[in-house]
Simulated scan of single mutants.
Amino acid sequence: MRKPDTHSVTHDHLLALVPTGPVWQVDWGEIWSLWPELATLDTCPQDPIHHAEGDVGTHTRMVVEALVADPDWQGLPDLDRANLFWAAILHDVGKPAVTKHEDDGRISSRGHSRVGASIARELLWYAGSPFAWREALCGIIAHHQLPFWLIERPDPNRLAIETSWRCRPDHICIHAKADALGRTCQDQRAILESVGLAALTFKEAGCWDHPFAFANDESRVAFFELEHRDPHYAAHEAFPCTITVMSGLPGAGKDTWIAKHRPEHPVVSLDAIRGELGVSATDNQGQVIQAAHEQVREHLRAERDFVWNATNVTRQNRLRVLRLLRDYGARIEIVYLEPRPDQLRRQNRDRPDAVPDAVIAHLAKKLEPPQLWEAHRVNLV
């Protein structure tokens, strides 16, 4: 896990640094000293065709200044205004990790949105930011370029509905407008027009300032699962069993939660299977996963409620699990646990089978908490 900086950053301090009226002045000296990840932006180059203003640090400051001058941003509630402000500060924080000089002389930064969301999540976790506030901010960073090209996609209406469950469409459009204004390029007007058309698409889809309203939970799960699913279709809900899928870093308290809330349920536990097979957490996990899937299928064939207990901290890993459960028509509830960093370390040390710090650090870098669209119910603890 990331070691706390000597300069301690707290969520309250982040809120205090958000500009207020009537001056709306940004304290760049204080902000740029918070994290070393920001200082690296000043030496990260950008493609001059899209960013003639220069390095990522210059672009970031231009975006933030454009945001702070926007009456739409100024009129937001305090917490929303703070959320968008810090999203703008951190929106390109992933670029230094992925920026490349291509053979044709161009500069690319493919994947920087996803990487940036991961970096921001870790920074804000250590700052003690509230989970919902933090994840809303990371959602903006992960999808901040979407309004630029939404209308060019084959089915922009469907993508608008999907996006409304990943971040606030009205907020991401406010950010995108500032992102367009905070750069020097030939096609700035075209970008702003695309953002305006994206806003109209979200409004026409019925999800401008809230997630699209599906008829029920199964309708939502099926829509994200099936490419051509009608979002307005009211799916029949009849499930043979309900499966609780645990999610959280080692030491998060999954076993404790299960003992308290699902004491009567059988548990498919990767830790338990590793113990039975003599496989450590750092060994190849193929045999462990195969044995777990065999247990899962046995419960599903018997239409038996049970708990799947594993870290499941990346969307890709959860997707493998969820696809198997969906094949049997099960109702799925994800339970995600996330203690504070110091509490996590303490709880892991106190376990009889404590996981090496290196393993936790590796998982923490890839952490993608479950989103509300992933299952019939997502319980965030």
Results as ranks from 00 to 15, higher is better:
R351T: 02
L14Y: 09
L137A: 10
E30F: 00
L249T: 09
G278R: 02
K3M: 13
T6C: 09
A97L: 13
P370C: 12
E37F: 10
D170K: 07
I172H: 10
S113I: 00
W149Y: 15
V378Q: 12
I161L: 07
V195N: 06
H175S: 07
L14N: 09
L367W: 03
H51I: 03
A354V: 03
R110A: 14
R110D: 15
E338P: 04
D209Y: 01
F85N: 13
E122L: 14
T256D: 05
K365D: 15
W125H: 13
K366A: 15
R110S: 14
A302E: 10
A136F: 04
W28M: 08
T244N: 12
G286H: 14
M246R: 11
Q74H: 06
G29H: 03
E37H: 15
A291L: 07
D327R: 05
E368L: 06
P77I: 04
R121M: 06
A69E: 14
H144E: 10
G206W: 09
S164G: 12
G329S: 09
A238D: 10
F224R: 00
A234S: 14
L123T: 02
V221A: 00
A205P: 07
C185Q: 11
F214T: 00
V307Y: 05
F306M: 11
V296D: 02
V63C: 13
T282H: 03
H91P: 08
P77W: 08
D42I: 03
A190H: 08
L249Q: 10
S113Y: 03
L150F: 05
T184C: 08
T282A: 13
F224K: 00
L226T: 15
R110L: 13
S109W: 05
L90M: 13
G206E: 04
R297T: 14
L249M: 10
V313G: 00
A213S: 12
F131H: 11
V296A: 13
R318A: 11
P156Q: 07
L150A: 08
E30L: 05
Q25L: 06
Q295S: 13
P169W: 12
Y126R: 08
R304S: 11
P169E: 04
G75L: 03
A252W: 00
R331F: 08
